[in-house]
Amino acid sequence: MTSKETLTTPSAEYPVGAGLLAKAPSQSTSSLNDTPLSRASRIVAPPLPQVSGPTLEFAGVSLTLGRTTILDKVTFQVRPGSVHALVGPNGGGKSSLIKTLLGQMPHQGRLSVHWPAEPGTIGYVPQALEFDRGLPMTVDDFMAAMCQRRPAFLGLSKHYAAAIGEALERVGMQDKRKRRMGALSGGERQRVLLAQGLIPPPQLLVLDEPMSALDEAGIQVFERLLGDWRAAGITVLWIEHDLEAVRRLADHVTGLNRRVLFDATPQQALTPERLLTLFSTHPRSLA
C-alpha cells in the first residue's frame, strides 16, 4: 500500500495526505492594578482547541477472506479530535481494519466518517517503507514524489519546497535531505514517513505502528507531534504495540483480536486481566 490513497464513499472523495501542527490558544493577562473583584467579573474561560477532525463509527464491521474470519462484527467509535489507540496481537485484524477505513478491503457492516463541516483530508503513515535500496532516490526526491503532483525527477516545486523543508526540520531530518533513502537507518526512514505525513494538513490521521523503528530521539519527535495533533483537534487513529506509550499518550484504547474485547480509557483498558485475554490464542469476550 502506498502512503497516499483516496477514500471513496457514496457522498465524497477524501484525499489522503497528513498532518497539522497548531499552536495552543494563548491566554490573556490581567493588569497589575486590577482588583480581585474586577478581575473576577471579567474572567473568561480560555477557548478550547477547535475540533477539525471527524467522528469515526465502526458498526458491525466484518471481514472474511476465504474461510478465515479476519474481523468479526467490530463495533466502536472514535471521538473527534481524540488520540485513539488500537492495540492487539499480530494477526488480530488491526491493519485490516485500517485498510477497510482507507477503502482497501471489502467488508460487511457499516463504517461511517462524520465530518464537522466539509469533508477534509485523511493522512496515512504506514508501518514501514518497502523499496529497492539501490535506487538513487534522495530524501528530497521521496518527499517530492509523496507530496507534489510534479514529477520527482524535476525536483521540488516552489509551491511545496517551504512546506517540505519545514516538515523535515520538525522531524530532525533537515540535514539529511540529500542522503539516499537506502542509506538511512530504519529510524531515519520512519522519520521521513512522519514528515510526509505533515503535508498537506489533515483532519484525520491514521498511524500504523509509527514507533516501531524509531530510536529514542525519534520517539521524542513522535510524542511531540502527537501532542501538536491533539492540540489542533485532529482525529488520530493509532495502531501501536508499545503499551506503555499508549498508556501515557492515548485518550482512548480499543483492544482488537478479530473482535473488540475492550473499549475504554487507558487506565481502564490496560489492566493485566484484559491484556492477558487480548493476547491469548482464543480470546473470550470481556464484560
Rank of each mutant, 00 (worst) to 15 (best):
R224E: 12
R67A: 12
L86Y: 06
T121G: 04
L32Y: 08
K176E: 07
S38F: 04
A12D: 12
A287I: 05
S280W: 06
W238F: 10
V260E: 00
S28N: 06
L156I: 02
G91T: 02
G19W: 07
T8D: 08
T100N: 13
R177C: 08
Q148D: 10
L168F: 12
A245V: 06
V236Y: 14
G19Q: 03
I199W: 09
P36I: 03
R189C: 05
A145E: 12
K94S: 05
A231C: 03
A40G: 13
D242T: 01
Q50G: 06
A144R: 05
A231E: 14
L56K: 04
L135A: 15
Q203W: 03
Q50H: 12
T138C: 11
Q27A: 14
S28C: 05
S82N: 03
F222I: 01
I219R: 14
V44E: 15
T235Y: 14
G91Y: 09
A45V: 06
T235A: 12
G120I: 00
V113G: 08
P49M: 08
V221M: 11
A167Y: 11
S96N: 04
I98F: 15
W115I: 02
E57I: 10
D140S: 12
G60Y: 08
T235D: 10
A117C: 02
P47I: 07
S96L: 02
T9D: 05
K158S: 13
G60S: 10
H241D: 07
G91Q: 03
V221N: 09
K158G: 11
Q174Y: 05
A152N: 01
G120E: 00
A59Y: 04
G66P: 07
M146P: 00
R180H: 13
T6L: 12
Q108I: 00
V125R: 09
P119H: 03
F153P: 11
L65P: 00
Y160N: 10
T121K: 10
S41F: 13
D251P: 00
S95A: 08
T75E: 02
R180Y: 15
L56S: 05
A217W: 04
R177S: 13
V83N: 08
K23C: 06
S62C: 07
H241Y: 10
F76I: 00
R177Q: 14
L65D: 03
V206L: 15
